[in-house]
Amino acid sequence: TVKFKYKGEEKQVDISKIKKVWRVGKMISFTYDEGGGKTGRGAVSEKDAPKELLQ
């Protein structure tokens, strides 16, 4: 599970739902399947990112 803040809201998403991951400076950005055909997005700092996300 990845915990992150998006627009001031605390969120979390299961690693299995993450589609795409990329690095922006010291942040790790990602998109994930929100269900219902929607794609969500989020970002975590490199130090807070789970190891599975960095692979």
Rank of each mutant, 00 (worst) to 15 (best):
T1E: 06
T1G: 06
T1F: 14
T1V: 15
V2G: 01
V2W: 03
V2L: 12
K3T: 11
K3L: 09
K3H: 10
K3P: 02
F4G: 02
F4H: 02
K5W: 15
K5H: 10
K5P: 05
K5T: 14
K5N: 11
Y6M: 07
Y6Q: 09
Y6H: 11
K7R: 13
K7E: 08
K7A: 10
K7P: 01
G8S: 05
G8H: 04
G8K: 04
G8T: 04
G8I: 02
E9W: 06
E9M: 12
E9D: 08
E9K: 13
E10F: 11
E10W: 15
K11L: 08
K11M: 12
Q12A: 11
Q12P: 01
Q12Y: 12
V13N: 00
V13P: 00
V13E: 01
D14Q: 11
D14V: 07
I15D: 01
I15K: 02
S16N: 12
S16Q: 10
S16H: 08
S16D: 10
S16W: 09
S16V: 12
S16Y: 08
K17Q: 13
K17H: 11
K17S: 11
K17T: 10
K17W: 08
I18Y: 00
I18K: 00
I18D: 00
I18L: 08
I18F: 02
I18S: 00
I18Q: 00
K19F: 11
K19N: 08
K20G: 07
K20H: 13
V21Q: 03
V21H: 04
W22L: 06
W22H: 06
R23M: 08
R23E: 02
R23Q: 09
V24N: 13
V24C: 15
V24Q: 13
V24Y: 12
V24R: 09
G25Y: 04
G25T: 02
K26N: 15
K26W: 07
K26A: 13
K26G: 14
M27S: 06
M27R: 07
M27N: 07
M27A: 05
M27F: 13
I28M: 03
I28P: 00
I28H: 00
I28G: 00
I28V: 07
I28N: 00
I28D: 00
S29W: 15
S29R: 15
S29K: 15
S29Y: 15
S29I: 15
S29E: 15
F30A: 00
F30D: 00
F30N: 00
F30V: 01
T31P: 00
T31C: 09
T31N: 04
Y32G: 00
Y32P: 00
Y32I: 02
Y32L: 01
Y32K: 00
Y32W: 09
Y32F: 13
D33N: 04
D33P: 02
D33F: 05
D33E: 09
E34V: 09
E34A: 15
E34R: 08
E34G: 05
E34K: 09
E34T: 09
G35S: 06
G35D: 08
G35C: 04
G35Y: 04
G35W: 05
G35Q: 05
G35T: 05
G36N: 15
G36K: 08
G37S: 05
G37N: 07
K38Q: 09
K38M: 08
K38P: 03
T39N: 06
T39P: 04
T39G: 04
T39F: 13
T39M: 10
G40Q: 08
G40E: 07
G40D: 03
G40H: 07
G40K: 09
G40W: 04
R41N: 07
R41Y: 15
G42Y: 05
G42L: 02
G42C: 04
G42K: 01
G42P: 00
A43W: 15
A43S: 14
A43M: 15
V44F: 03
V44Y: 02
V44M: 10
V44S: 02
V44L: 10
S45L: 15
S45E: 15
S45W: 14
S45Y: 14
S45V: 09
S45P: 14
S45I: 08
E46H: 09
E46G: 08
K47G: 09
K47W: 09
K47P: 05
D48L: 11
D48S: 09
D48V: 09
D48A: 10
D48Q: 10
A49E: 01
P50V: 05
K51V: 14
K51A: 13
E52V: 10
E52D: 08
E52Q: 10
L53V: 04
L53H: 01
L53F: 06
L53S: 01
L53R: 01
L54P: 02
L54Q: 07
L54V: 12
Q55I: 14
Q55M: 14
Q55G: 09
Q55K: 14
Q55D: 14
Q55N: 13
